[in-house]
Amino acid sequence: MTFYEGIITITIVSVATMLTRFLPFLIFKSGKLQSGYMNYVGRALPPAVFAMLVIYCFKGMSFAAPSGFLSQLIATAVVVILHLAFRRTLLSVAAGTAVYLLLVNLFFV
């Protein structure tokens, strides 16, 4: 991607993000949602999208050799266990990333 393509991509992401924030203020007069359908999609999308994003993060995993997936698997397990135990986002993310950094840089080079 060239410099200008990067600028265009950032602009698109920025404008699209603004769109999701300004749209309701532009089209709805009050905070009472008229359509149960919108409510339903709005409730369903976030969990589905974050499941997709997790898959997106793991898309490059390869099962041909242990180095292709073991670090990610172990570090993800650390994140899940810590988060279920303490439910502190910072702790889970920091510890998981630290474990991953150690694994990929020291053990699975």
Partner: peptide, 23 residues
Amino acid sequence: GIVGFDFAMTALFVVILLEQLMK
């Protein structure tokens, strides 16, 4: 040569997904 900082993103998404699952 130090690689793997991108895992912060994975960890964040995993945490958000767990939070979603708790609902």
